[in-house]
Amino acid sequence: MSETVIRVGGAPVTLINVFDVDASKQQELIDLLNEGTEKVIKNRPGFVSVNILASVDGTRVVNFAQWRSQDDVKATMADPEVQSLGKRTAELAKPAPHVYSVVSIHHA
């Protein structure tokens, strides 16, 4: 079973996409991201997990996605179905996707 893992090091690779969205369209964007994840993203090679977070004020949605490798991220982003999904999300909100490395972790 795959699950979200946060640890220092190279794997998994984390892609975080922060969407600025009009509060009236936040739920529509969430629904589209959930649908795209179920129908397309989770079937891609190297998929580990997706977590979708919604700001309480309704103006942002964060898509926190993890992959086995950077190559898996690149291949996924090149997939025409994923590109179509990206265009649909960009019609609802302003995306800002970036790949991140965990550099430190702190616990209580």
Rank of each mutant, 00 (worst) to 15 (best):
E38S: 11
M1H: 12
T37S: 14
M1E: 12
A96D: 15
H98K: 10
V99C: 12
I16G: 01
D31K: 10
N63F: 07
K87L: 14
G9A: 03
A96R: 12
Q66M: 10
I30S: 00
R88Q: 15
R60W: 04
D71P: 08
N63R: 01
Q27I: 10
L32H: 00
V50D: 00
L32C: 09
Q83M: 15
R68P: 01
K39P: 01
S69P: 04
S55H: 03
P95F: 08
V40H: 00
N63I: 04
T4A: 14
G46W: 04
A96K: 11
K74W: 02
S84P: 00
D72A: 10
S101T: 12
V21L: 08
Q27V: 13
L29W: 01
F19R: 04
G58Q: 02
R44E: 11
V62W: 04
V82T: 14
S84Q: 15
T59K: 10
G36P: 03
A78E: 13
M77H: 02
T4G: 04
S49D: 10
E35P: 00
A90Q: 14
A78K: 12
V61Q: 01
V13N: 00
S2N: 15
V18S: 13
D79G: 08
L85G: 08
F47V: 10
K42A: 02
F19K: 01
V18A: 08
V48E: 05
D79T: 08
F64G: 06
D71F: 01
A23N: 03
L85E: 01
E38D: 15
P95K: 07
S2L: 03
D20S: 14
V18C: 09
T14H: 15
E91Q: 15
V73T: 05
P97S: 09
V5C: 09
K25H: 13
L33N: 06
S2V: 13
Q26G: 08
S84C: 07
L53E: 06
I16S: 12
N17E: 02
S69T: 14
F64K: 06
L53W: 13
P97T: 08
Y100N: 10
P80H: 03
L92Y: 07
D71R: 04
A93I: 05
T89A: 13
G46A: 11
D71L: 11
